[in-house]
Design a protein around this nucleic acid. Structure first.
Lengths: 219, 219
DNA sequence: ACCAAAAATGAGTGATTACTCACTTCATTA
DNA sequence: TAATGAAGTGAGTAATCACTCATTTTTGGT
């Protein structure tokens, strides 16, 4: 995958192709790098222009404001973060064929999001950092979660509770604990303590085991 | 507790009393509020001065740079975050009397940190946000963790593993999962989704139960 | 009441900020 | 190849930035 393909893949929503001129791609790349490193507020448009090898005016030809540049990066990425839940056949696949247990489902989810975070780490950094300051980003995330993730996640949990695999805790609690555990691992692994020696496969399997023992039905 | 007492309590290290003039306290209060709301980089010293009801020059009489003002807030707070582990008798108390099980220990720890986060929420926000950008803050946290927390935490886990209460996972893994679970709950509760209707006591107990089932020795 | 030291002030500093705009260069198609 | 619109440019703008310093005000000891 060449330098621009990954950007195009990240930025396209609903398979709409994104036309990016050479300079535009350079601007986005530079902005992603610098926002991730120093944060949005501490990064100046002149720095972005310099790193992108572009005149400062060129940035404002494509994006009316600096904030609009941030949102152009952030908005499509929210969809990619939610990706595993977006497919129409998602629930059906979980129930009928692909995953015979909640454990398998969690394992697939974790592996999938592990690869995603690894690949788009700078983007994740930007979220981690800027969500706190921009309430509109936070709202977008919450909207996507409620409209695309929550309902499907709940049905998966109902399903495995009825099968007697999961404890009779409220679905909200199980969702929270599952996400917290997965996100907690990924953030620790890639952002908080990336320099430790990690045996990723083993640590993920242990994490899954601890989550499953914690959530399984007793008896 | 009046307006300045909580600040003095937060900022003192090793029980050294902190002398804070009226204006100085106002500056710190204003800075904490604004850094928490908008972030360090997006907060100007003139805004801080205005909110503190103080001339801008006064800030720089007490703190040579804006960064020094940030560190004056952050450094003592790191100690408070680590507080439960700092007492000399800590390990002894855990082993001999106070906690008869890892579950009791975790419950006490979680309740303690719950009250702390609730009380000093703006400070926690500042950490959550600025650790990403200031490597010196991150290093301070890691140093305090390694020197004051890690060793004691490990001994507690060794102890309860020998008693057969905890699974034979590596101590590092158990520490990571325990902290991730507690921090995950507190951040979700107070920062990510503070507006949900939380039954704190019940949700904390569920969280502890899931963690303990996840970590207990099988058999 | 007096004075010296400490604290507080706010106008002023040069640097940097996000953003504009008149202009040039490039790409496409007639 | 000439025409046209889009893409790109960079000097220029007012506003704001962190920080300074000469001056004034407050404080505490006698």
């Amino acid at each position: 995958m060449n330098d621009e393909q990954w950007l195009q893949e990240l930025l396209k929503i609903n398979d709409e192709e994104v036309k990016l001129s050479d300079k535009q791609a350079k601007i986005l790349e530079a902005a992603i790098e610098m926002f991730a490193e120093k944060g949005y507020a501490a990064t100046s448009t002149s720095e972005i222009a310099k790193r992108a090898g572009v005149a400062e005016g060129t940035i404002f030809r494509h994006y009316k404001t600096k904030k609009e540049l941030l949102m152009a990066i952030v908005t499509p990425t929210i969809m990619k973060i939610a990706a595993p839940f977006l497919a129409k056949e998602f629930v059906k696949e979980v129930f009928e064929s692909q995953y015979s247990s909640y454990e398998d489902f969690i394992r697939a989810l974790m592996n999938n999001r592990y690869e995603f975070v690894k690949k788009y780490l700078p983007m994740i950094r930007i979220f981690w950092q800027e969500t706190a300051f921009h309430s509109d980003i936070k709202e977008q995330i919450q909207t996507v979660f409620m409209e695309n993730i929550y309902g499907k996640f709940k049905r998966v949990i109902d399903h495995f509770q009825q099968k007697g695999e999961l404890a009779d805790l409220p679905a909200n609690t199980i969702i929270r604990m599952t996400i917290t555990t997965i996100v907690g691992f990924l953030l620790t692994r890639f952002i908080l303590l990336p320099n430790l020696q990690w045996d990723d496969e083993q640590e993920m399997e242990r994490t899954i085991q601890m989550l499953m023992h914690g959530l399984k039905k007793e008896g």
